[in-house]
Design a binder for these strands. Sequence first.
DNA 1: CAGTTTATTGACCAACTGGTCAATTCTTGA
DNA 2: TCAAGAATTGACCAGTTGGTCAATAAACTG
Lengths: 215, 215
Amino acid sequence: MALRSISEIRRLELKQAAFEVMQTEGVQGTTLEKVAQHAGAAKGIVLHYFKSKKQLFEHAMRHANSLLRDEVAARLRRAGSPSERLWAIIEGNFAPAFYCPPVCHAWLSLCAEVPRDRQLERIQHVIHRRMRSNLRSALAGLAPADEIDAIALGITTLIDGLWLRAGLQSGGFGQREALAQMNDYVRHRLGEEAMTGRSAELRALLADGKAVGGG
Amino acid sequence: MALRSISEIRRLELKQAAFEVMQTEGVQGTTLEKVAQHAGAAKGIVLHYFKSKKQLFEHAMRHANSLLRDEVAARLRRAGSPSERLWAIIEGNFAPAFYCPPVCHAWLSLCAEVPRDRQLERIQHVIHRRMRSNLRSALAGLAPADEIDAIALGITTLIDGLWLRAGLQSGGFGQREALAQMNDYVRHRLGEEAMTGRSAELRALLADGKAVGGG
DNA sequence: CAGTTTATTGACCAACTGGTCAATTCTTGA
DNA sequence: TCAAGAATTGACCAGTTGGTCAATAAACTG
């Protein structure tokens, strides 16, 4: 997608910068000054493109999530079978560009603001709804209808939990351990036939069959 | 445990007040003024008992967690079999006094500060270490040795994820749904023999065998 | 009771922050 | 070229916050 005006370029730069500052400073420590500086501009410019700090953060959250959404969508497009779709979702959520301590921390920090910002709450709600919808569609061919909701919830909860731990930045798990845990869950909850959709990279990464230990 | 001096009483009051303010305002919005007011005192008194705001928050986190720790410990004392110990841990983490949106939100908010406060990080580390140790000891009699770590990690991750969702305060799950999800995991990962340790209350709450849907 | 320690208060300060605004520079198109 | 509009800047403001401090009240002690 091409960026039409300078205005749109600047807006993109600024929300990107905001999210990057959040990765090290948290929402708490992300000031307009720091965002502007990180984008190589003066502070005033930020409020020229965004009505308020709150709105900047909301756009930053939306933008950051749209990258993850696109990552998953691209993998889903390449997936054929239900089990491939399932693993497209899971592997997309643990792609190195997203599942890393700084990004998880920024996301965690934004989550902590959700109860006090109705707009953030809406965004979060959309994210969860899309995740559930994706999972339901993939699971439809893999599990009895009356178990799909429980399994979808189990998977999203595990993903959330692993992201949370990664966001703590200590005692977190690397991509390998995280995917091994997802592996463990899916194998035991859905059975061997749900494992055929894993990518070759994932199989290689996990060196199949090994257990996953705690950190 | 009796509180010896007035000083200790005040300190307890203040960290309790701090945690309660966090439940509605988040770490970000918890100011010394608000904490003092919530404790019915003047702002100056807070810094008379705690060296700094950071230190107050650290003590508040420790205190809040010690309540949860005691809850689990009390249930563990009443537990006999490994499966009873397992469910003591799980049910303790979803006791109504702890697993509720305000408390989960305060905890979530504190987690978001972990990467920028080495002391909070240490506390978080101790919490996770205790959880893993408790789970390992309970699981030792329920699963093959080489699967224990994976299962312990799965359980803590699910608990973290469910707390996170509850902390978002919207789209969160009630105690019943959360425990149903833990039920689902343990039954499929450990088998029916691991289900005997559930309390009568939990069995009644779940009306056994029903699936858990997404919210 | 006198004196010493401890608890408590509220005024005060310096730093920071989000937001406003007038002035200036840059772009653009007729 | 030149005027109109957009982009950009930095000074400025008002409110808030963590933290300090001197003064006062209360509690304790010998």
